[in-house]
Write a protein that binds this DNA or RNA. Structure first.
Lengths: 213, 213, 213, 213
DNA sequence: AATGAATGAGAGTTCATTCAT
DNA sequence: CATGAATGAACTCTCATTCAT
């Protein structure tokens, strides 16, 4: 037996649970697995969390908090925009990619979080689904707000900001998942650059005949 | 109970199971639920499928087969390309959107399949994961091949075809998921158009200062 | 494994459970104990009863049904009364004792039922308490009705029929419990006689000075 | 926490435990509940009582002590009896009722004790059962001795003193239980009167034809 | 071929009790 | 003395699967 301050113990359990959930998946992971990993008795977990699912939701809520915090941090920021005629595509893309990278870093703090968010927590209970939905909505909202700001500044053309934000988030997540499957740690930097570039300038070649305006 | 030709009965069970899995999720759905829906005894299911998971994998394999069939159908096709200088963006996008739509129709035959592929079958066993991975890989491969063909024809600029394909698929799926959450039947046509347009011409405004070449 | 018709199996489980509950008490008795006694697997019990407590309530409800049936059987009966002046105490008591005996036979079908009703089912959940209360109320109602009938016929003096009924039932039950403690099978016949005699003529001696009327 | 003299603290815990047991029942009541009620930490209880059940038995033993004390107090008393021919029924009953009342006051000090004795402590462990049995035996013994004394004095007719005592106690307890169910505080005075009257003169009417002696 | 009664491994959870602080 | 964090035995209950009918 080893004593620990309540707050600290709860965090320790969450950390171990995250690893266990990521490794085995929510259903395959026993409460026993988590407790073994945390080096505590099975009963101890229930002093900190109401039940197994509450452990998962606590993990997810952590992420949700981080994402929300980022959103507010960015809201506080006061950005001034150069006129579009002074800004090259390359610079704009570079700036965008940095923004996205920051976002990714916050959500996918580590590969375990990534795995849990995109895989192990998917398709569970409605409670879980709700938090997952909130995280998703916040992510999309952040991207969407960036798009709208950039539109207002004249950097982006007219488009459905919400739909585009969703697609961007989805595209990036899929790329992350694909990387995950390869079992190499995900390179968030490369991911951010590639996604930004695609979404910024699209795929079509300049050689195409101009549209008749 | 009513007798039925083996083949037919198996298909009927699959159809019911698909509905049940989509409605309740894989774990929440009992074998009993499925059998009730199919109007058969609980033992009967085991004469057609080795176990509960085999039912799910059969459903997924169905989808995988359809996607693979599409891929081969398209391979057989012999497309001739106009020179890019003769093709406007609008026409190119229109063509692309039609292609994507066809793909979506095949994968997301119905909302139940959609839900199972993107949610209920996620994060389960490795066997399931493997089929899901194959479906994904095939989808990406189809899109990727289209991209490479279009590049060869000079329609698309130089880009990492694989990564872009992944992002496209991910973006579209996310859009589909978002629609699913709204509980309205997904409008595949609109979805295809929006996605294609974004991925084709990107988000940046023409007013930006040209890159120094 | 041995197959059994549903109805029959349920009854068999109830019979075994009654024995087990009587022997060990509700809390000390495991579901395993019951199932072992019934020679079935632990899961089988749950095909017939929602949970452990439902087994107990089923047992109690059986008794309740029997008591209610007795009540109605007696209601149907049409008794004619001789004028009190023609009836000796001894005869009246004899008749009463037979009535009571019939009642006791129905409630305390066997020593196990007796023990469960008066001991093992006491102080449990409110649901259990409710059925126990209903049984009690019915018993009291039967006795009370007899009292009122006998009063109307002039056999019994003026008294609070309800309170007296309660006391009678309580007295008899306590006697039964005491007998139970001695671990000898309860002699319902003797019990009925003793109780009836006490309640009929009371304890006071005739030698007492008559009340000044 | 506040310090308290050992003896005093133990009594305080017992008082709180009594309330808790009465309100929730022995099994439903947690050690935590008791400790919260007593305003002490969960570990502290174990410095005064070996375990949860010891708390209950201590409560019961308190009652047992009180009943035994009453018994001895009455033994010490030296009663002189008037000849039966000088005593009216009404006076005898009045006297008896007062005796009973005193007894009831001692046993059912309060509604919580009542509830615990008649409900929450029933059907538990053999140790508990044993004390309960001792209390019961003492109660019966007191009543029985009174009966025998009164018989000796010629007040009561010939009867099985033990059996009658048991029935009396049982009748009174049942009346008390019934009152308890109504959730009104039990009126011990009325209870004593009603019971005594019934048991004294019985139920039969005087109009019955006299027994042929 | 079809059934559904029977199964039992294994899950999550509770809570009286211990003991380091 | 007092505490409450830690414990783990023991419980009830679920449900995919088997197999006698």
């Amino acid at each position: 037996m080893s004593y620990m301050r309540s707050e600290e113990r709860a965090r320790q359990i969450l950390a171990c649970a995250k690893r266990v959930f990521a490794e085995r998946g929510f259903h395959a992971a026993n409460v026993s697995h988590i407790c073994e990993a945390a080096g505590i008795g099975r009963g101890t977990l229930y002093q900190y969390f109401a039940n197994k699912q509450a452990v998962l939701t606590a993990i997810l809520r952590d992420t949700l908090d981080r994402v929300k915090a980022l959103m507010e941090r960015q809201s506080a920021l006061n950005v001034t925009f150069a006129p579009p005629e002074k800004l090259t595509r390359a610079v704009a893309i570079e700036y965008s990619a940095r923004q996205l990278r920051e976002l990714l870093e916050v959500v996918f703090e580590d590969n375990d979080t990534l795995r849990i968010l995109l895989r192990e927590a998917v398709g569970l209970d409605v409670d879980v689904e709700k938090i997952l939905g909130e995280i998703d909505a916040t992510l999309v909202a952040i991207v969407e707000r960036d798009i709208i700001r950039a539109q207002a500044a004249g950097y982006l053309r007219a488009l459905d900001a919400h739909a585009v934000a969703i697609m961007m988030v989805g595209g990036v997540e899929k790329l992350a998942l694909a990387a995950l499957r390869g079992d190499v740690p995900v390179d968030l930097d490369k991911l951010a650059r590639e996604a930004t570039r695609l979404h910024a300038i699209g795929t079509l070649s300049d050689r195409l005949k101009p549209d008749p305006t």
